[in-house]
Amino acid sequence: MSKYRNRLPQLTGQTFITDGGMETSLIFHEGIELPHFASFVLLASPDGRRKLKHYYRPYLDIARQHGTGFVLDTATWRASADWGNKLGYSPEALRAANETAVDLVAELRAEFEGPQRPIVISGAIGPRGDGYKAGPMDASEAEDYHAEQIATFAGTEADMVSAVTLNNIDEAIGVARAAKAHGIPSAIAFTVETDGRLVTGRSIQDAIETTDSASGGAPAYYMINCAHPKHFEAALDHRSSWVKRIWGIRANASAMSHAELDESETLDAGDPIDLGNRYRRLLARMPHIRVLGGCCGTDHRHVAAICEACLPPQGATA
């Protein structure tokens, strides 16, 4: 059923983009209420599905304009068992929501994909707990917890799964192992604090090397997400081998700390042009990076600015 599961095109040299901060865009720009920050609840109604497609389309238009591929994440960051239970979803209803999320983006892929613009469907996985606070969970527990959602994605058109906003290395190991067991590629995205370290105090290097060691190198690649570039730029030694495992950046628009963002009642959209320039400087040091997108506070303006800063004009040679 999957189109690219056996050969992810973002691993073959072409630059891909992805979307921005789905939940912050829906809440602050569209005025949509998302209980527990869960966008998957919109899948339950025709109007909600229409709103999700309205959210995705500007990003897909940007990819078409720049002639680039796209990693199309499902609206399922909160669609795992603990969050589903808080929202009143039975296991069967939660499974159906994850399947519907894939069906929705598959429709968009059919609409927007072109011969030189592959669109990879990624089942989005979020942390079991709060993405900004570490929770106690060992790797085996994490594998058991995330296996259900991953198994659902493995039975759909999803080409891969992306676990984003992870701050617990054991949780990353569990996701990577579960994805490997179900035969679907995974990307692991860690989030860091303003000091460039996970909230536990462990470094990005430690997170990547430990996850690789404990999972047999299972993740297809790693990303950094939900932090501003100024928080992690200095932590990335481009000469080190572990940095070559980072293939994606999905930064926040705001340079505020996670604690400050948690307490803010307004959206800090930052400066899209500055963000694009920071991506360009990162790519100059780390030209192997292939997936560019945004996270909290970013929208299509930020992704457009990243493309303008980092991608050659269509028709030009790199």
Rank of each mutant, 00 (worst) to 15 (best):
E113M: 03
D82I: 04
H288R: 07
S257I: 04
V105D: 00
T317G: 03
G84A: 09
R290Q: 10
G270F: 06
S203C: 07
T191I: 07
I169V: 15
P287G: 08
A235W: 03
W83K: 04
V71C: 06
T156I: 08
P313Y: 04
M286N: 12
D73T: 11
V303D: 14
A207W: 01
Y145M: 09
G276N: 10
S241C: 11
I184F: 08
I289W: 02
V175Q: 15
S213L: 04
F70A: 06
T298N: 04
M1Q: 13
D73W: 01
T15M: 10
A163C: 11
D195T: 03
F70E: 12
K133N: 09
K86P: 08
G129I: 00
C226S: 12
I169M: 13
A134V: 00
T100H: 05
A214Q: 06
A259T: 10
P91V: 01
D212M: 02
Y132Q: 10
T24P: 05
A255D: 15
G21R: 02
I32H: 10
Y55S: 06
T76Y: 01
D170F: 05
A97R: 05
R250Q: 14
L43F: 07
A179P: 07
S215C: 01
K53E: 14
R239W: 14
V71F: 04
S254F: 05
E33C: 13
G31W: 10
E157N: 14
A124M: 01
K180V: 14
G315F: 00
L292M: 15
R117P: 04
T12I: 06
E233A: 08
P46H: 04
R177T: 09
S186A: 15
P185A: 07
K86W: 02
S186R: 15
T165D: 11
V303I: 15
N85A: 12
Y56K: 05
G114H: 01
V243C: 12
P118V: 00
D82C: 12
D159G: 07
K133I: 03
Q65I: 03
I32M: 15
A220D: 14
I125E: 07
S122K: 00
A235Q: 12
G31V: 10
W242H: 06
E107N: 09
N6E: 13
E260D: 15
R290M: 14
G276F: 01
T12H: 15
F153A: 12
H302Q: 11
T211L: 03
T211W: 00
N168Q: 13
I246K: 02
L261Q: 11
P9W: 03
A93T: 11
Y132T: 03
R64V: 11
A81R: 08
L292G: 15
V175T: 11
Q65K: 12
N168L: 00
A189K: 14
G126Y: 01
G20P: 01
S241P: 13
R290D: 10
R95C: 06
D82Y: 08
P115Y: 07
A269T: 14
R117Q: 05
D206G: 04
I125P: 10
I62A: 09
P127H: 05
I184S: 04
E113V: 00
C296I: 08
F40D: 02
F37L: 07
G67M: 06
G123W: 00
L11F: 09
A93N: 15
V199E: 14
E113C: 01
Q14I: 01
Q65R: 12
D73R: 03
A158Q: 08
L42M: 02
L275R: 08
S90N: 12
D19R: 02
H36T: 12
